[in-house]
Nucleic acid binder design. Structure first.
Lengths: 318, 318
DNA sequence: CTGAAAGCGCTTACAG
DNA sequence: CTGAAAGCGCTTACAG
């Protein structure tokens, strides 16, 4: 890429200094809110800046100060169903501190991940969020060793790297749902869970089981069905099977919105009570943790489970 | 943000030059594949680079060369239903040229847009993609004048700015669907269109009308219903009304997947024949157009309509 | 073909 | 409180 644009000589810090009759050092101090500048000089410099329409060149600043105020999101699936909400959280957290966010997509390919990491490190990013957009699972370390650049995992987790991994509290979320059903008087709870191979599936079963047990009740194993996919079709099929038993449950908890959608015919669908994944909040936490690390706060291996939220709607209102 | 990391003195171009016994100018030339370097010197430099593990500092390069190989996506809705597919297209196009992509979210707020633009220009981005994630409509120019930085609109369009706007060809897409229904022998076509206030709604009505007319047929106005939202509920309601008429249509075309989903009960849903929005391709086109402009290619006001694609599935197979 | 020199636009000790 | 000087790590004319 070559820049073929010609501009009418961008205003530089030197211009401001000359016009204001000070040194560039002083202009820089004003710009960075250093205390060691006299009030009248500061005033004069600020006026000159706004009169000339001066804007700092972040690239030059970055070269000198060795920090770029830039972090990167490296995802394995830019089109994952949770990607945008997670990214929004990261972007919000970063924006609050005037940090910019670079976006890169590895498609889950370690070779692509390595290439992106190399490019991002060459660009001197201050830190990285390594993220999955669709499924919580363990992963190996970054495809490129990064001894000097902090990073965190988001919606996936490392096995031993000394960094935090930000995850949804699927167990707690399922417990919320089960407790809610108990609270509205249901005792015989059916559970359409996700595919058995997903971590969230086991975590949610744990949550439901423990909640019922704590209430002196028990989860009937024959009322737990595992879908083979997260599709409405599976939700419909399994719910139908459950409700046509001689001893049907008095409430059904589905492990995902799609499963629940299929459980109900569209023309008789009340607004669903839902356990919301805290995606936005997870993104924010990831951003904040990363920025803290960029600022020198030590990191260690830890799994941070962000609580889910129960949204009660008509489907469980009496 | 301050960088509190201490690294063991990063390898610099000067180090490579010293070890290889050449000047930094020569190292730079090798790095940038300039022809004016002797083969044995080039070889020696390359070996030294890989031996020392040298990596270019993109920030320093950017300061000197006045180009950052970075573009930005500025969206009004990071969680719009089309956002990720569009972004993926942009990211793919950019990655092919080793261009990095910055992400910013204005939430449709002109003040936030201005702030982001300012920050992005300060960072010396080579160009910008200004994008809507959910709805094609006209918009005013960028919230900050950008005389020196090229940009394009994506999934929204400017009224007069001398830049391209990349849009889906909704009219052509609807025509594809109508023609397909004619091709499989249907003559009396019902049309569940979107809300009347959307541009895509008018464009699609145009497409269907023109296609039927060209086939010597005509679209019965009483078989055109406009939804009040894009929801499955609306799709269900309107389809039901249409099919319970004394003279029902022999095919129904819905203006969105959600409307079509509602049109069918989940347990009897065949795979839907669909007109796919060319979101990925649109993103790619936007990226390519922008990079061309960055390289000095002149821009002008134009609306680029990217063709939709018909995906025939069981719902229209005999 | 190769290198010395200048300079991109800032910030940072440091001297006064 | 203010500024002269050095320098971040590159690339780019230019001279030889």
């Amino acid at each position: 890429m070559t820049a073929a644009r010609s501009s009418p000589a961008r205003v530089t810090m030197r211009d401001v200094a000359t016009v204001a009759g000070v040194s560039t050092a002083t202009v820089s101090k004003v710009l960075n809110d250093r205390p060691d500048v006299g009030p009248e000089v500061r005033q004069r410099v600020l006026e000159t800046i706004s009169r000339l329409g001066y804007r700092v060149n972040t690239v030059a600043r970055g070269l000198r100060s060795r920090t770029t105020d830039t972090i990167a999101i490296l995802t394995d699936d830019l089109e994952g169903i949770f990607t945008t909400a997670l990214m929004r959280g990261v972007e919000e957290a970063a924006s609050e501190y005037d940090i910019s966010v670079l976006l890169a997509n590895s498609y889950g390919d370690p070779e692509k991940e390595r290439k992106h990491l190399r490019r991002l490190l060459d660009r001197q990013v201050d830190g990285l969020i390594i993220m999955s957009g669709n499924r919580v699972r363990p992963r190996s370390g970054p495809a490129l060793p990064m001894p000097d650049t902090p990073y965190v995992f988001l919606y996936e987790y490392g096995m031993s790297e000394p960094v935090p991994s930000i995850l949804p509290d699927d167990r707690g979320g399922a417990a919320l749902a089960a407790q809610h059903l108990l609270d509205i008087g249901r005792r015989r709870i059916g559970f359409i869970n996700g595919p058995a191979s997903w971590e969230a599936t086991a975590d949610r079963l744990d949550g439901v089981t423990a909640t019922l047990r704590a209430a002196g009740s028990v989860l009937d194993p024959s009322l737990v069905h595992h879908a083979t996919s997260w599709s409405p079709e599976d939700g419909h099929r399994l719910t139908h099977a459950m409700l046509t038993r001689p001893d049907p449950p008095d409430a059904v908890f589905c492990a995902s919105d799609d499963l629940a959608t299929g459980a109900l015919a569209v023309h008789q669908r009340p607004p669903l009570t839902t356990v919301a994944l805290p995606l936005l909040e997870m993104g924010r936490v990831a951003g904040q943790r990363l920025l803290a690390a960029v600022n020198g706060e030590p990191q260690r291996h830890e799994l941070i489970r962000v609580p889910c939220e129960l949204r009660v709607r008509a489907s469980t209102t009496r």
